[in-house]
Design a protein around this nucleic acid. Structure first.
Length: 462
RNA sequence: GGUCCCAUCGUCUAUCGGUUAGGACACAUGGUUUUCAUCCAUGAAAGAGGGGUUCGAUUCCCCUUGGGACCGCCA
């Protein structure tokens, strides 16, 4: 059995986190089964589709490490074919022209609203041989939905789904301007692309029932469907653009790294025993639709942060720096070339102090900025004794011929003894002097990460 | 409102009729530590309610309740 999967976003906005998960699941299913994963840009809404969003979607998937097979498929390029199919359906009697004006439709909707009954197109033109065709109305083509009986879909996630055909309206497949609608285009393209498995959000359930009728009418093989539960906001509602953490960029912005997000999204609605951390390869090997749950899941920021922290800790310094550099240049400032080496070296201890790339950015300010700014609260902690300690440390430090934790430790210890204090008494003023804050990386890490001349310069400034 | 769907700790989830209902995040407490963290240990925390079926239900069925999705000439 072949597995052809696809992710088919519309380029009408930045990539949604739910969309990312849909893409991930499709990609995973394809890779797991040695199949293909295609990307189809559904840009038939001319008004809202934007080239920049198309580019953003492609780069977003690339960021996550989800690569699609072949060129991306641009739906608008296949419009002619869609129209041909609409005409074929018309000819075969599976569709009909509807001359209702928009006004007429709107009036119907209003009426239904008033009466409190659900609107469904009244199928006025379905079998209207004796109706007078109005000259001033451009017709739309509607699909002749089944009126009786039921449609059943054996959904790979939801199980058997059954709906009464009478609830499916005669949906439009070709607009009055002769452009195809989603229902038509998606079906035709899925067929042409030989898609075997359609994984999409649960909100598409009704579309699958509609589209199944098109497949049946055309005598095409119906793909397998898997409708995955939606991701809800922390408020428990379908994620919308208004939610502040709804797009992929929202996560990149705070310094989440690709593997962490991939892992988080994988575990949102899917599980494999008690396993929490999955490498990319493991996720491919272990993924299956059986593991997908049926109930929607809420986004949990602290969980994302925690997984990100796990990944940051395990990644090696060089790779982490690559992510860091990319992140900083995109959202902060560019890093001075001269600082790169010291930053790479420092990733080793910096990564233990943060959950995100942004945390690392904050903790590495003492390296990136040449001037130390001491906060008011911290300044208060520098008293006369502190100044003496700093001075004493400076003269000892200056004398050291080799710098290491081993050579530094005796110096600090002797200062503790000399001034009858503890480590904090010595460490705190030194950290404030060197970093600008009483919080920060370990003292030895700080001292050893900076150049000797830089350390002396900072010590002198007190 | 109509149609469809969902229901285990606060959150993500394990359990596929018999478990002291497990794990992870978050939370609390204690310990290590050089500040903040990390790390380690411990703790608190769940089967929505009511009926069945069964020797036995979190698990199967029904009802109630709660929540969600869809109802476009958007995708």
């Amino acid at each position: 059995m072949s597995f052809n999967c696809r992710f088919a976003p519309s380029p009408t906005g930045p990539l949604h986190i739910g969309g990312v998960r849909t893409a991930l699941f499709n990609w995973l299913l394809a890779k797991k089964n040695k199949g293909k994963f295609f990307l189809r840009i559904e840009d038939t809404d001319k008004e809202r589709s934007k080239e920049e969003f198309k580019k953003q979607i492609i780069s977003s998937l690339a960021w996550l490490g989800i690569e699609h097979d072949g060129e991306e498929y641009i739906q608008s390029k296949n419009i002619k074919k869609h129209i041909t199919i609409a005409e074929e359906l018309l000819k075969k009697g599976f569709a009909y022209k509807c001359y209702c004006s928009e006004q007429e439709i709107n009036e119907q909707k209003e009426k239904c609203k008033k009466q409190g009954i659900p609107y469904i197109y009244n199928r006025k033109w379905r079998d209207a041989k004796d109706l007078q065709v109005p000259k001033d109305v451009q017709p739309v083509i509607r699909f002749k939905s089944k009126i009786s009986g039921n449609t059943i879909i054996k959904d790979l996630v939801q199980g058997e789904r059954n709906i009464s055909n009478s609830t499916i309206e005669d949906f439009v497949i070709l607009r009055k301007d002769k452009s195809p609608t989603y229902q038509l285009s998606a079906t035709v393209d899925d067929h042409e692309m030989k898609i075997t498995h359609v994984i999409r959000g649960d909100d598409h359930m009704i579309n699958s029932f509609k589209q199944k009728q098109i497949y049946d009418a055309m005598g095409w093989e119906v793909p397998e469907f898997a409708h995955i539960p939606l991701i809800h906001s922390e408020q428990g509602k379908k994620l919308s653009k208004r939610d502040n953490a709804s797009t992929l960029d929202d996560y990149i912005k705070i310094g989440i790294i690709p593997d962490a997000l991939r892992n988080y999204l994988l575990r949102l609605g899917w599980s494999h025993k008690d396993k929490e951390i999955f490498t990319k390869q493991e996720s491919i090997d272990l993924f299956d639709l059986n593991g997908v749950g049926k109930s929607p899941s809420k986004l949990d920021m602290s969980r994302i942060l925690s997984i990100n922290e796990t990944y940051i800790k395990t990644i090696n310094e060089k790779d982490l720096f690559k992510f860091f550099k990319e992140y900083v240049s995109k959202y902060k400032t560019s890093i001075d070339q001269s600082k790169e080496e010291i930053l790479i070296k420092s990733m080793g201890f910096l990564k233990n102090k943060g959950k995100t790339l942004e945390d690392i950015w904050n903790n590495s300010q003492y390296i990136i900025k040449d001037k130390v700014e001491i906060g008011a609260e911290d300044k208060k902690l520098i008293d006369d004794l502190s100044k003496t300690i700093i001075k004493d440390f400076k003269s000892e430090y200056e004398k050291l011929s080799s710098l290491s934790r081993e050579t530094l430790e005796p110096v600090i210890k002797s200062l503790i003894d000399k001034h009858k204090t503890n480590f904090k008494g010595v460490g705190q003023p030194l950290r404030i002097t060197l970093v600008g804050s009483r919080f920060g990386p370990g003292l030895y890490d700080v001292i050893l990460s900076l150049d000797k001349s830089e350390v002396l310069k900072r010590l002198k400034s007190i």
